[in-house]
């Protein structure tokens, strides 16, 4: 049943914007590196910024660049984006149960901003999570992502070559930084899943294009892991 949309509470919005600042800060080097890499991949600044505005998904955007670089097909890139971002379905489902009741239109608005990081910040808020809080967090992260994509596109070239070279590690450092707290919290399951994902990707990468290799690796990894834990239980 459709409920009346409560007017977005400016107080909640402001609290969300403040919480989202940490993400905005964290996105800065990654967005700059994306803008820089987009330029070196041959995208125009408009194409790079449009991608950050419409997609707003770091890993998928980086993957798209690497696929463009190797001459992958457009449909293949869209499908790979779908596979990489499909995990947001579960985050959306989780937020769905935690968020305060709001109109579907409002949920369709703040749902746009549900990256891993926006989800993580939003989901630790005590229930029910106000829609304005999620929206504020998302807008702070989004502004940084889009703005620094443009900054990176133009300033990338003026950075010292040696720093540019090192910036190639930025995305991987981010992924590791995202993984380590989970390893510390959950331990072996996270390590095993990451090793399975990386291991199968390494194997599939010999035969498949990037997007398909990642897709096949992730599916294989979660199925193999499921079989492993079932065998251990039963």
């Amino acid at each position: 049943m459709e409920q009346a949309a409560p007017a977005p509470n400016t107080n909640e919005l402001r609290r969300g914007l403040s919480a989202g600042l940490s993400i905005a800060f964290g996105y800065m080097p990654v967005a700059i590196a994306f803008g820089l890499l987009a330029g070196s991949t041959g995208l125009t600044v408009y194409e790079a910024v449009l991608m950050s505005m419409l997609v707003f998904a770091g890993a998928a955007q980086y993957m798209a660049l690497s696929m463009i670089a190797v001459g992958a097909g457009m449909i293949e890139i869209v499908l790979a984006t779908f596979i990489v971002n499909f995990r947001h379905l579960l985050m959306s489902a989780s937020i769905n149960e935690r968020a305060e009741p709001t109109s579907k239109r409002y949920r369709a608005l703040f749902g746009f901003f549900l990256t891993d990081e926006v989800f993580a910040v939003s989901s630790v808020h005590k229930e029910p999570v106000p829609g304005g809080y999620i929206l504020g967090t998302g807008i702070a992260a989004y502004s940084s992502w889009v703005g620094f994509t443009a900054v990176g596109y133009f300033t990338g070239a003026v950075l010292p070559a040696i720093l540019q070279e090192s910036m190639g590690i930025a995305l991987y450092a981010l992924f590791i930084a995202l993984l380590v707290p989970s390893i510390k919290d959950a331990g072996r399951p996270v390590v095993v899943l990451a090793l399975l994902g990386g291991g199968f990707n390494w194997i599939y990468a010999f035969a498949l294009d990037t997007g398909w290799a990642i897709m096949a690796a992730v599916i294989t990894a979660v199925v193999v892991y499921e079989l492993l834990i079932r065998r251990r239980i039963t």
Partner: peptide, 27 residues
């Protein structure tokens, strides 16, 4: 089992995004 498998996707994705790509991130 399906919810559990979906909940495992992020870690497998992170593993696949890190490896083997990280080997080729530098010269």
């Amino acid at each position: 089992w399906l919810r559990r498998m979906l909940s495992h996707v992020p870690y497998a994705v992170l593993g696949a995004l890190i490896f083997p790509g990280i080997l080729y991130a530098q010269e």
